[in-house]
Structure formats: structure tokens, C-alpha cells
Nucleic acid binder design. Structure first.
Length: 589
RNA sequence: UAGGGCGUAGCCAAGCGGUAAGGCAACGGCCUUUGGAGCCGUGAUCGAAGGUUCGAGUCCUUCCGCCCUAACCA
């Protein structure tokens, strides 16, 4: 027994990475000779919105499993509700999946491809007395099903009762069904229902709806149909047609599995196995197409690809890499327990990848002018900077240095606190790859705001080295003023203030948890001249500030950068902690 | 309420009767021409209570909590 288990593990995985329950099931099926050793998965998105990071988890799970077991993977659009679906969404989903690196080869399918087959099967069920046409209204059906009733503080679940149309003859049902298809009846006036069991403890088995009348133009089948199959009637059969062996879906479909199985049994066709896994939740955001749509429609964000959104197109625009998402999905695992994954893990995976691959540049986000008083007026030096200390093959570049520079406003303090080891009057710091400078003077305007500062440089420290071995605590990034290019930088924070935005106090809505600082636009940034060449999608690390990606709004004269993610910042953390302490103190006193 | 599912550290998650992996976060420290990166170190008796067993996170019973469904959406 123990040996068997070990053997199963070996099939899927010869390193020590734990194997999840889904892969375990598949390995066991394979070992038992099920499906002739075939593994075939699929991912069935409904094209009714853009896909998000949560979807990335389930597609990758399906795609990877197929690859690992030497099987196949299909992409199938579950397009049975034309009212909500569109080609825009189909196109975006395909684009996002390609970017993610998911490959369905030539197996791109649509549930709507199977409408005719589904219709024939429906007739077959009718003829077998397993389905009937029902004239009950939507509200009546719900009533007959045994809709839960609130009685006092208790909820009562009445048993279902048969529809008065339940015992129509097969002939009558067939006739009515054909006339439904022919368009003889108004929308919503009739449905085709499976004849199962109105007393079943699982509500899904109480004569579920298979077809509804709906005169809506379908994005693929046009006006060919005025009746559309429901999800339950479509899904399992589509899986069966495609020869899917393992149909992986999310937990909320667990209740539907008996129905999934029932239809396939009645039709006596190939029977895939449905396996449910938990859906991903991420902290500080929402992952529900309905809610994301709401954010878009209400203008809370600029669109589906607004870099604050958790959609794949937004993450791509913001600068996320497919590799980071792969790593993240791999790390969170596959289980059935409901969870909210900490977005910090995603950001960790991102930094990990970006650190290895992003060229480093210098950019000053909030500039403060520095004048090197002992530096010759017209002199310009080109100093050598390392492009990526994590990657020697990335080489070096030359950065211009001159008498007037910009440094970050926050890197200078007139009256610095204890652990601040950047620039202050009388203090010496290093300008990265350049010189050590000492602040000698501060110029202010009438309001007392610091206008510019004056420093001297030590010519012996070219490149940032100290021949005498003296040490400086701080190293600052900088940009030569006459050489700098202007740029716009968009800083992003979490879209929501709360870890779980859906947790709201009574009388409040989740939209009130939106973070008002989720986007801050800086328009007066000074960037090193090499950035003039940057193209949309290019990624960089701005030294000491974070990872940035050129936005599609960029223009040659004025590049726009999205902050993908900050660097880990122990100084910022220290400050936050201090402030936290202070505010705690003031609150309690 | 009925049916289905879940409950291992702040967050994920291994564990499959033999005495609690790993990652993220957090907190210390080392190192550092990014307060970056890297390196080292620090934490749980497993929802609760009973029971079976030489031995239980793992088996049984009861209880508690949370989630899903109750759509002619998927």
C-alpha cells in the first residue's frame, strides 16, 4: 500500500515537491488503467469579462496537469448566455492566455459548436420520458422547487412538488420542443426541464432547466437559435464530446456534480470525472467578474486593464511577468479549503523575477536640485554604471554627471532623525557610481521651503570609491539636471484598504473600502537619458525606488512609467512603525 | 432549515497511525557603492470535547465555526 502511494508520487513528480489531491487522483486513475492511460483537461471560461489572477490559477492547473501527464489541453468558451457575452471578451481572454504561456494547440472550441448535438440529445431525453416542457413561470418554478422560506429566525426548506406539466406525453413534449426551437412561443414562456426528482435533497436535481427561450443574437451563432441550453445541460456533454477525462472546476460546482453525472448516465456517453478545487481569493482586491465589471462600469478604475485591477491584462500593463504568476500559482497549491492568499506572496514572486531580470536605471521621482559648488561649470563626465548586479552579462552603461543634479527630496533632511543616514547639512553621502558629496548649504524660498541645496564633492572619490577607506552610510541615486529627461510616473497601492474588501459594516458597501491613494500620478520626474529609448512594456528597476514598466500611454517626448512594485524598503517600514507607535500613543492619551 | 464542502502558526500549505515539511509575512543579526539583493536565526500540539490504540493532526463519536446552493448566470 505504502509502496503504491510512493509509486504514484513518482509518476507525477520525482522531486520532493508535494503532490496535490487532484494530481493524486489522476495518477491513481492512470495506474488503474482508466481512460486507456489518456489525460485530457480543458479550461472553460465564459466570455463575459476579462480574466483575472484567480483564473490564471485554474487554467494553469489544467494546462500543467495535461503537460505533466503527457496529455492534452483544450480551451473551450462556455458561451451559452449571449446576453452577457461578447467577442471583445473572447479576444481578450485569448490574448491573456497567450501571454500567460498557455497552449491549446489547435483545440480552441466553443460550447456553441455543440448546440445542434445538444439539441438532438435533448430530443432523445424527451423521447425517453426523461425531460418535459414546462409552462411554469420563473417564479412558479422556484416555488414548486421548494424555495427556502424565512419563518421567524428560522429558515424552512419545503419539499418540492411536481410541476402540473410534468406528465405530458413524450409526443406532446417533442412537438412543443420543436415549436420552441421554431420560435412559436414568446421568451420565457416555456422551458425544457429534466425529469429527475422533485423531492431530491439536492435542489439541482429537482427538475433542472435545460433550455430557455431567449431571443438574443449570439456572438457566434447569430440568430440561428431562439432557445439556449443552460450551463448544466451544456457543460458535461461538452466535456464528453471533447473526450475530457478530468473536468476540473471550482468548489461552487460541487453541488452540480450529481446532475453532471446524471445527464451523462442518461445519454450513456463518455463520462468525464468532475473534480472541484477551491477558487483563489487575494487580499486587498476582489476576484469576481461581476464586481470587477462594476468597478469598470462605475468608473472606479479606468478600465479592465487599469493597472490597479487584478485582471491579467492589467497586471501585464503594470509590469507583472508570466514567470512571476507561474511561480505564485505553483506556490499557493491546490486544495479544497477556502482561503484568501496574501498579496504579499504574489509581490514576493514578482520581485524575485524582476530582481533577476530588470536592468537598473536611475530616476528621481520628486526632484530636489543639488549644486556641486566646487565642480567646474561646463564639465560633463560619463560614469560607468552596472546594468544589473544580478546578471553580469547585462553589462554597463555610461551616465552623465555635471555640476547641477537632482536627488530625491526625501533623501535630504535639514534636521534628520536618528537612523536617517542620507543627506543633511554637514553630512557626506555617496552618489551612486559618482562621487561622495557633502552638504554645505540650503537655499529656501520665502515660505521656508527648501529650494535647492549646495554641496561640495571630493574629486578623489570618482566612481564612489574612497581611496582612504572612509565609510559613508548612505548611497543616493541622482540624475544630471541638464541631461535629465522628463517623465510621468504612476504609483500604485492596493486597490482596497482592507485585506478582505467584502467585509463591510452594516449599511456600508464594499466600494467604500476602495483605497483613495491607490493611484498617485507624479508628472515632474527626472530620468536618466538612457530611458529616452524605452518602449511600452519595457521593465526597469529604478534604483532604490522599485520596479517600473513603460505604460502604453507613453509618448516619445514624455514617457510614462507604471510602478510595478516597490523594492522592499526597511527604512519605510521603520518609519511606518515609528508613526504607528506615535499614533497609538496619541490615541491612548 | 435541507443538501454539499471546509477547519494544521498572521497568510498559504505538507502530513495518508509513529511522535508537526516548506514558502510568504513578522522579528533579530550578518553583509552591502541600491536602507535592494544575498546569508543566518526565531514561532504551532493540529476548531473543541470524548473514545479506539503501546502510540492520533491522521481512525470513531458528538459538538462548534465558516463557506457554497436554494437563478429560465456560469
Amino acid at each position: 500500500m505504502a509502496k503504491d502511494k510512493l509509486h504514484q508520487n513518482n509518476i507525477v513528480n520525482n522531486n520532493k515537491e508535494p503532490v496535490d489531491f487532484v494530481r493524486r487522483i489522476i495518477a491513481a486513475d492512470l495506474a488503474a488503467g482508466k481512460n486507456n492511460g489518456r489525460v485530457h483537461t480543458r479550461w472553460p471560461p465564459e466570455p463575459n469579462g476579462y480574466i483575472h489572477i484567480g483564473h490564471a490559477k485554474t487554467v494553469l492547473l489544467n494546462y500543467w496537469i495535461a503537460k505533466e501527464f503527457g496529455g492534452r489541453f483544450n480551451l473551450r468558451f462556455d458561451d451559452t448566455n449571449p446576453e452577457k457575452e461578447s467577442v471583445e471578451y473572447i479576444e481578450s481572454i485569448i490574448e491573456d492566455l497567450c501571454w500567460l504561456g498557455v497552449d491549446w494547440e489547435d483545440r480552441l472550441y466553443y460550447a456553441s459548436d455543440y448546440f445542434e448535438q445538444l439539441y438532438e440529445w435533448a430530443e432523445k431525453l424527451i423521447q425517453a420520458g426523461k425531460a418535459y416542457i414546462c409552462d411554469l413561470s420563473s417564479e412558479e418554478i422556484s416555488q414548486y422547487r421548494g424555495k427556502a422560506i424565512q419563518s421567524g429566525d428560522k429558515i424552512i426548506t419545503p419539499p418540492g412538488k411536481d410541476s402540473p406539466y410534468r406528465n405530458r406525453s413524450a409526443e406532446e413534449n417533442l412537438d412543443l420542443f420543436r415549436r420552441m426551437r421554431a420560435g412559436e412561443f414568446p421568451d420565457g414562456s416555456k422551458t425544457l426541464r429534466a425529469k429527475i426528482d422533485m423531492a431530491h435533497s439536492n435542489l439541482n436535481m429537482r427538475d433542472p432547466i435545460m433550455y430557455r427561450i431567449l431571443r438574443t443574437t449570439h456572438h457566434r451563432t447569430g440568430d440561428r437559435w431562439c432557445i439556449y441550453p443552460t450551463y448544466d445541460w451544456t457543460h458535461g456533454q461538452s466535456d464528453s464530446i471533447e473526450g475530457i477525462t478530468h473536468s476540473i472546476c471550482t468548489l461552487e460546482f460541487e453541488n452540480h456534480r450529481p446532475l453532471y453525472d446524471w445527464f451523462l448516465q442518461q445519454l450513456a456517453v463518455f463520462h468525464p470525472q468532475q473534480i472541484e478545487v477551491t477558487r483563489m481569493n487575494l487580499s486587498y482586491t476582489v476576484l469576481s467578474k461581476r464586481k470587477l465589471l462594476q468597478l469598470v462600469e462605475q468608473g472606479c478604475v479606468d478600465g479592465w486593464d487599469d493597472p490597479r485591477m487584478p485582471t491579467l491584462s492589467a497586471l501585464r500593463r503594470r509590469g507583472y511577468t508570466p514567470a512571476a504568476i507561474h511561480d505564485f500559482v505553483r506556490r499557493i497549491g491546490v486544495t479544497k479549503s477556502e482561503s484568501i492568499v496574501d498579496v504579499a506572496l504574489l509581490e514576493h514572486c514578482l520581485r524575485q523575477d524582476l530582481n533577476k531580470h530588470s536592468p537598473r536605471v536611475m530616476g528621481v521621482l520628486a526632484p530636489l536640485k543639488v549644486i556641486i559648488t566646487n565642480y567646474p561649470d561646463d564639465r560633463v563626465e560619463y560614469l560607468t554604471a552596472i546594468n544589473n548586479p544580478e546578471d553580469v552579462t547585462a553589462g554597463t552603461r555610461n551616465v552623465p554627471f555635471s555640476k547641477v543634479l537632482y536627488i530625491e527630496q526625501e533623501d535630504f533632511m535639514e534636521d534628520p532623525p536618528k537612523k536617517f543616514y542620507r543627506l543633511a547639512p554637514g553630512r557626506e553621502v555617496r552618489l551612486r557610481y559618482a562621487y561622495l558629496i557633502t552638504c554645505t548649504d540650503v537655499a529656501k524660498d520665502e515660505q521656508g521651503n527648501i529650494k535647492e541645496i549646495y554641496c561640495t564633492y571630493d574629486p578623489a572619490t570618482r566612481g564612489g570609491n574612497t581611496p582612504d577607506g572612509r565609510r559613508v552610510k548612505g548611497t543616493l541615486h541622482w540624475v544630471s539636471a541638464p541631461h535629465a529627461i522628463d517623465g510621468e510616473v504612476r504609483l500604485y497601492e492596493h486597490l482596497f484598504k482592507k485585506e478582505n474588501p467584502l467585509l463591510v459594516d452594516k449599511g456600508e458597501g464594499w466600494l467604500e473600502n476602495l483605497n483613495p491613494n491607490s493611484r498617485i500620478i507624479l508628472t515632474d520626474c527626472k530620468l536618466e537619458p538612457s530611458l529616452a529609448e524605452a518602449k511600452p512594456g519595457d521593465r526597469f528597476q529604478f534604483e532604490r525606488k522599485g520596479y517600473f514598466c513603460v505604460d502604453i500611454d507613453s509618448e516619445r517626448a514624455k514617457p510614462v512609467f507604471n510602478r510595478t512594485v516597490t523594492l522592499r524598503d526597511s527604512w519605510a517600514k521603520l518609519i511606518r512603525r515609528e508613526q504607528g507607535k506615535k499614533s497609538d500613543f496619541s490615541r491612548s492619551s
